[in-house]
Design a protein around this nucleic acid. Structure first.
Length: 293
DNA sequence: ACTGTACCCTGTAGGC
DNA sequence: TGCCTACAGGGTACAG
């Protein structure tokens, strides 16, 4: 579920509560999510102050005073909810407080001020790992990540250099976290619509035969940046599970041009085309065959 | 080296 | 009402 805008929205919601706080206790209600929780998870967290909370791609990274990073990924259905001091104690009461099924409240961080951060994840595709801060850039999770899409490193030149000669279609290329880190199924479809590019087109068409960026690559870069920024401004997209850290829904789902709109008329004035659903690498794609070539 | 498919897990929506 | 299938914002491990 959570792509870059959703993870960034969660980060902004958690940061004011987490940063500067100290961890009083850890509740791990099961030993694993997608992967086993870190060895001696509680020992390594309790007593630590959280110095900062940043995002890289779809990862949340809490910097701990002891020198380790707590790296968190929300998978498809993960969500963090802040429960303020005074919230009720029994798991069953979380349903009122977080709106999530308490059976899937897997990890609870208790902070010294009495508030709690509850991690809920029905499908358990999310995970948490810890690593020394100095080792993070070389860690397997981060080493191969591509450009951060809202950073200056995502440019037409970058796209052309990564896409040249590749046989993959544009949709799969943009979904590949080694190329661009943070896009997912929704925002790839939305960015391609804004750029007027078909998801079926070969990624290689972002570069000419000399490896220089084509006008398609030039259109794609601002399309990606704009759709992500607008989605962040709207607090992300809530389809099912995703919520802000305070339980609120995102609003960007109301602004989808193509995602999940198969069979509906294209939103572009005067187009009149019908949005089509196709499949790339097992994931649904949506595009307007008239607007997107 | 690259590309496509199966799979991890649970919940829900839709067809019969 | 049930039962069954297909599908869902993620990523990874293989086989070809």
């Amino acid at each position: 579920m959570p792509e870059l805008p959703e993870v960034e929205t969660v980060r902004r919601g958690l940061a004011p509560v987490l940063v500067g706080s100290r961890i009083a206790a850890l509740e791990a209600r099961r030993p694993d999510l997608r992967f086993p929780l870190p060895e001696r998870f509680g020992e390594r967290l309790v007593g630590q102050e959280i110095l900062g909370l940043e995002r890289r791609a779809k990862y949340l990274i809490a910097a701990l005073s002891g020198g380790e990073d707590l790296v968190m990924h929300l998978g498809m259905t993960g969500r963090f909810t802040i429960v303020r001091d005074g919230g009720r104690e029994t798991p069953g009461d979380y349903i009122h407080e977080t709106g999530a099924d308490p059976a899937h409240d897997h990890v609870v961080l208790h902070l010294c001020d009495g508030s709690r951060i509850v991690y809920n994840d029905p499908r358990r595709f999310g995970f948490m790992v810890m690593m020394p801060r100095t080792e993070r850039p070389d860690h397997a999770l981060f080493r191969g990540l591509g450009a951060e899409p809202l950073g200056i490193e995502l440019s037409a030149d970058y796209l052309a250099s990564r896409a040249g000669g590749k046989k993959v279609n544009l949709k799969s290329f943009l979904m590949d976290q080694r190329m661009i880190a943070g896009l997912g199924n929704i925002y790839v479809s939305e960015a391609l619509f804004r750029a007027g590019l078909s998801p079926n087109r070969g990624a290689r068409s972002l570069a000419d035969r000399h490896g220089a960026p084509t006008d398609r690559a030039m259109r794609l870069v601002p399309a990606i940046k704009q759709v992500l920024q607008q989605a962040i401004d709207a607090g992300g997209s809530t389809l099912r599970d995703y919520r802000h850290a305070d339980g609120a829904s995102g609003a960007f789902q109301d602004e989808f041009a193509v995602y999940d709109r198969a069979g509906l008329v294209c939103v572009r004035k005067g187009c009149g085309g019908t949005i089509r659903r196709t499949v790339h690498a097992g994931r649904a794609s949506f595009h307007c065959p008239r607007c997107q070539r």
